[in-house]
């Protein structure tokens, strides 16, 4: 094989557009934000350099930041495993039991993922309305509860609604990823197991789950990264007039909501940028830990 010489310019030219665009509109704003995070600035008046004051405030005095971190992590810790398990089960069932109708079910369960988060926020706000929402109407009609539940008015029910929302929104995406993963598992493995008389449940736990481990790593890490960005849905879910930011007791105020509030509502670009960096540090840490746990000894990836 006549490989191009390592000094050839071609590959560099091919990757050049990516790196130019990334430096211009990805890295530069990030570094610029880092700089801004060391200042006190509202975006238009004179900028004052304040050193690490924003970070001192963030990490040592800002209880709201920690609460937001806790809220975000809590919602994620509940929602992510649920949507992974549900997505995995659904994918495995669709693959083994459905043939002609698989595409239809795939699309239906993917619908929530393609629905605009803005719509989901408003939709759930109406469905879970205390006085007149469909959910309470149904629960009352069936007789599961005697009095309507104040879903969006108490901290824990509000969190539960957000978890439900995220699971509903995300499991279809997980399902699709797992379906893709399943199609790479050699069919012989299943056939061999069947000859040995293994039931579906056995093959699921003995073949499917272990073989999908790299996919798990993928959905878990991307799930964490995306989970920490949570903003649209809770922002719109609790947009009513008498509503505190992030719902009752700020129970579902996420870090990005805190960031948005600081940077773009309270006119503190500097502090907002510091919150974003605080979040970055946390994400980095969590992803690292998650990858360690799931990967334990396996070396997948590139």
């Amino acid at each position: 094989m006549a490989k191009p010489s390592p000094d050839s310019k071609t590959p560099y030219l091919l990757i050049l557009p990516y790196f130019v665009l990334y430096f211009a509109f990805g890295l530069f704003p990030i570094l610029f934000s880092l700089f801004i995070s060391f200042t006190s600035w509202n975006g238009f008046s004179t900028m004052t350099f304040v050193g690490v004051a924003n970070y001192v405030r963030l990490f040592f005095h800002d209880a709201a930041f920690y609460k937001a971190l806790y809220n975000t992590a809590l919602v994620m810790v509940c929602a992510l495993p649920l949507s992974i398990v549900l997505g995995l089960l659904l994918a495995a069932m669709l693959k083994d039991y459905f043939d002609r109708s698989r595409n239809v079910f795939q699309l239906i369960n993917f619908l929530p993922y393609i629905t605009t988060p803005v719509a989901i926020g408003i939709l759930f706000q109406i469905l879970f309305d205390w006085k007149a929402g469909a959910v309470n109407s149904i629960l009352l009609a069936v007789g599961i509860v005697k009095a309507p539940i104040y879903w969006l008015g108490h901290p824990w029910p509000a969190r539960a609604v957000v978890v439900l929302l995220l699971v509903w929104q995300g499991f279809g995406y997980m399902m699709v990823i797992f379906l893709a993963g399943l199609s790479t598992i050699p069919a012989e493995l299943y056939e061999a197991a069947k000859i040995d008389g293994a039931k579906w449940r056995d093959t699921f736990f003995r073949i499917t789950v272990p073989m999908l481990r790299p996919v798990m790593t993928f959905v878990l890490t991307t799930g964490i990264i995306v989970g920490f960005r949570l903003f649209d849905e809770p922002q719109l879910l609790f947009s009513g007039e008498g509503e505190p930011i992030g719902g009752p007791d700020h129970a579902v105020e996420t870090v990005v909501m805190t960031f948005y509030q600081a940077a773009f509502r309270d006119f503190s670009f500097g502090y907002g940028a510091a919150i974003a960096y605080g979040l970055f540090i946390v994400i980095f840490f969590f992803s690292f830990v998650a990858m360690r746990i799931v990967n334990r000894g396996n070396d997948y990836g590139t």
Partner: peptide, 20 residues
């Protein structure tokens, strides 16, 4: 480097991006 940038939340540069 590209993989590492996956870890970076897009909000990180938002403030700088507005100014840019």
């Amino acid at each position: 480097f590209i993989l590492g940038s996956l870890m970076v939340p897009p909000q990180l540069g938002l403030v700088g991006f507005v100014v840019e």
